[in-house]
């Protein structure tokens, strides 16, 4: 009854396979780890600088700064007032510093995602083949449990801020790329034809027609990216990213119910602030693209 057994690789072969791959990767880590670490140093410096700026500056200034940005994006007094109240409450319950750390990490992650994601999205929109190659990679990034890709990242960079940022960006960048691609592909072909008829070069077409018209969709991508970065904060805290994630992790380990809830709510509060501000901005961008009168 041999055929009833699944024809699987022998236990020893399997172990050898794992050892070979792990060994090769470890070797790669030893050879290139320091180089890679050095390459990411500017990013780390920037993150540290931003963190310091937010934490060391007098809190009223920081509060005014954040609420100011929220207001500029949303042009909505209610959203700005809500942001003020939420931040005051966060400070009152002693979570100011952790919140600032989290905001710094999310800001840096979003910036990295925008800088990398938009060009990839553009490349995808311009060629179907590119789309065919990148789409499955994005599927992989979105469905692969985040702990799995934390392993190689930690092996290369150890614990700390940079591996945290990388892990968050890997998780949060797919919607950025997908929505950039979608936004450009949805631009009305008639408008593109007009741009062609006037002799636009392909760069002029991109910068004067496609990107501006795709901007509301790209904004939705940035919004999604911020939301997903915030969702990753707790996981990132497991590899040493400081911020609101760490007290949550501590609360899980020690069953501190109140501590968990309070820090969780702080994450929710900044998520809502960012979400409303960026959505309102996206809507404002869309104002002129809607309803064409006949």
């Amino acid at each position: 009854m041999d055929w009833i057994e699944f024809p699987s690789l022998g236990r020893r072969d399997l172990r050898d396979l794992r050892l070979t791959i792990d060994g090769a990767f470890r070797e790669f880590t030893r050879a290139y780890g320091p180089t890679l670490e050095r390459a990411f140093e500017p990013l780390e410096d920037f993150l540290v600088w931003l963190e310091h700026l937010l934490i060391e500056s007098p809190w009223p200034l920081v509060l005014i700064g954040i609420v100011g940005i929220v207001f500029l994006l949303s042009r909505n007094v209610r959203i700005a007032a809500g942001a003020t109240l939420a931040l005051l409450a966060i400070g009152y319950f002693g979570m100011w510093e952790d919140t600032m750390r989290t905001i710094a990490v999310v800001t840096v992650c979003t910036m990295v995602a925008v800088i990398i994601g938009i060009p990839i999205g553009i490349a995808m929109a311009r060629s179907d083949r590119m789309q065919g190659i990148i789409n499955p990679i994005l599927d992989l990034m979105q469905t692969m449990p985040s702990f799995v890709y934390l392993i190689p990242v930690v092996m290369i960079f150890g614990l700390g801020k940079v591996p945290g940022v990388i892990a968050v960006v890997v998780y949060a960048i797919p919607p950025m790329i997908r929505l950039t691609n979608l936004g450009i592909r949805l631009v009305d072909p008639a408008v593109l034809e007009a741009a062609d008829a006037f002799g636009s070069s392909s760069f002029q077409k991109l910068s004067k027609v496609q990107l501006p018209l795709a901007l509301p969709t790209i904004m939705a991508g940035i919004n999604q990216c911020i939301m997903m970065s915030l969702a990753m904060v707790v996981v990132a805290s497991m590899i040493g990213v400081k911020g609101l994630g760490q007290p949550v992790l501590q609360a899980i380990n020690n069953q501190y119910f109140t501590m968990g809830v309070m820090n969780g709510l702080a994450i929710v509060a900044i998520a809502i602030i960012f979400d409303r501000a960026t959505q309102a901005y996206g809507k404002r961008l869309q104002k002129h693209s809607e309803v064409i009168h006949g």
Partner: peptide, 21 residues
């Protein structure tokens, strides 16, 4: 062709094809 389109021709479209932004 680009130069030709820029300087020698101009086009008006049935559905206007204005840039909405």
């Amino acid at each position: 062709l680009r130069e030709f389109r820029r300087h020698k021709t101009a086009m008006v479209f049935q559905k206007f094809a204005l840039l909405p932004h």
